[in-house]
């Protein structure tokens, strides 16, 4: 049995779901694949747990019960304050799992953490998009030099293997990728259409249900979808800068707009699109005929169309969701573990 040590940086929705899923599944995974995934460090914004021999299942599950920013309360392996270098000097993880929040201005703390991980010889799995969006080339160059993997399947349509499929279409000339890439705004629009709520009400409901964040700016102003387009553009080898992506804000949509559209047999959707031939990208409010595939993608579902010179593919699935995303992150971790450590 091979042991693979991982460090989990960021312990919010995804971090907790990931540690929980791993605690419950790792024995089975070990049996099935012959690798034992050990969590040697977990970090949130206020503290860290470091245990070089790896947390046991019970400890992992108990860790998920600490309050927000409460890792420092977790008994003898815990300490206050964050120092990712210390994680590396004390526990030398093989895989770094980056689950910190996205900051599209600085890319931090993700970028520094990821570079530190690579320089320390660890492979990287990230659900945080910002470091890739702002520093894709730097990160990949470092990984290449050190012969390390950087996996980020959870960053676009996080609950599905969409990016894996896109990346594997190597012989294709990808012409266009477009669709509904943000679950929060799609949920809000669905509420507006189905329950005739105005934007504010729908947003409030989404917040109440934990679908939208307290500060929903990244979603409703289109940054999140634009970030995803940027990552897609890198994956297909036609990079587009996030700042050059045209964005409209969903806050502009009124209930009247929705009703007008419905009267004409249409629905309003928030469509992200990347035209790889013209090299332009946008996140726009669009009216779509009711029969159109995108009109059927409702609630927190995402849907994307890939058009290449040879084919057209549709991808429908959960964009986020903590359990789904946690599994995608775990799939990345397993893939690295199996490819490099067995």
């Amino acid at each position: 049995m091979k042991n693979v040590n991982i460090a989990v940086i960021g312990f919010g929705n995804i971090g907790r779901a990931f540690v929980r899923v791993l605690a419950l599944k790792r024995k089975l995974l070990a049996k099935k694949y012959g690798v034992n995934i050990n969590v040697v460090a977990v970090v949130d914004s206020k503290g860290m747990v470091i245990k070089p021999s790896g947390l046991d299942d019970y400890e992992m599950l108990k860790l998920c019960e600490v309050p927000k920013s409460g890792i420092y309360m977790f008994g003898s392996y815990a300490k206050q304050g964050v120092n990712v270098e210390e994680v590396y000097s004390k526990a030398a993880p093989n895989i770094h799992v980056e689950l910190t929040p996205a900051n599209y201005v600085s890319g931090e703390p993700g970028f520094t953490n990821i570079m530190l991980a690579l320089k320390s010889g660890a492979h990287v799995v990230t659900a945080n998009k910002a470091p890739l969006v702002l520093h894709y080339e730097d990160i990949m160059a470092e990984a290449r030099v050190r012969k390390l993997a950087v996996k980020f399947r959870a960053t676009v349509m996080g609950g599905t293997p969409f990016l894996e499929v896109l990346a594997s279409m190597k012989s294709h000339d990808i012409e266009k990728v477009e669709g509904i890439l943000n679950a929060t705004t799609n949920y809000i629009l669905t509420e507006m259409h189905d329950n005739l709520l105005d934007f504010e009400q729908a947003l409030k409901k989404a917040q109440a249900l934990g679908i939208a964040e307290t500060d929903p700016t990244l979603d409703i102003e289109g940054f999140d979808a634009a970030a995803k387009l940027t990552i897609i553009s890198y994956v297909i080898g036609k990079p587009i800068n996030i700042n050059s992506i045209y964005r409209e804000s969903v806050t502009k949509i009124t209930l009247k707009d929705v009703l007008d559209a419905v009267k004409q047999g249409q629905v309003i959707k928030y469509i992200a699109s990347l035209d790889a031939q013209k090299m332009v990208a946008s996140v726009k409010i669009e009216r779509i005929p009711r029969e159109n595939v995108f009109a059927q993608i409702n609630g927190t579902l995402n849907g994307v169309k890939i058009k290449s010179d040879a084919t057209e593919l549709f991808f429908i699935g959960r964009g986020g969701g903590r359990m789904e995303t946690a599994h995608t992150v775990l799939d990345d971790v397993l893939e690295v573990a199996l490819r490099w450590f067995t």
């Binding site: 019960e65 600490v66 309050p67 927000k68 409460g70 709520l197 009400q201 409901k205 249900l209």
Partner: peptide, 30 residues
């Protein structure tokens, strides 16, 4: 324990946020 105190407070604050956002009228989901 401090841990349980914070946890319960966190849950209650979330509950408060949710009840504050309850929209007029009956919504079985909420």
């Amino acid at each position: 324990s401090q841990k349980v105190y914070k946890r319960v407070l966190e849950e209650l604050e979330l509950l408060k946020r949710i009840t504050n956002s309850v929209i007029e009228g009956y919504d079985p989901v909420l």
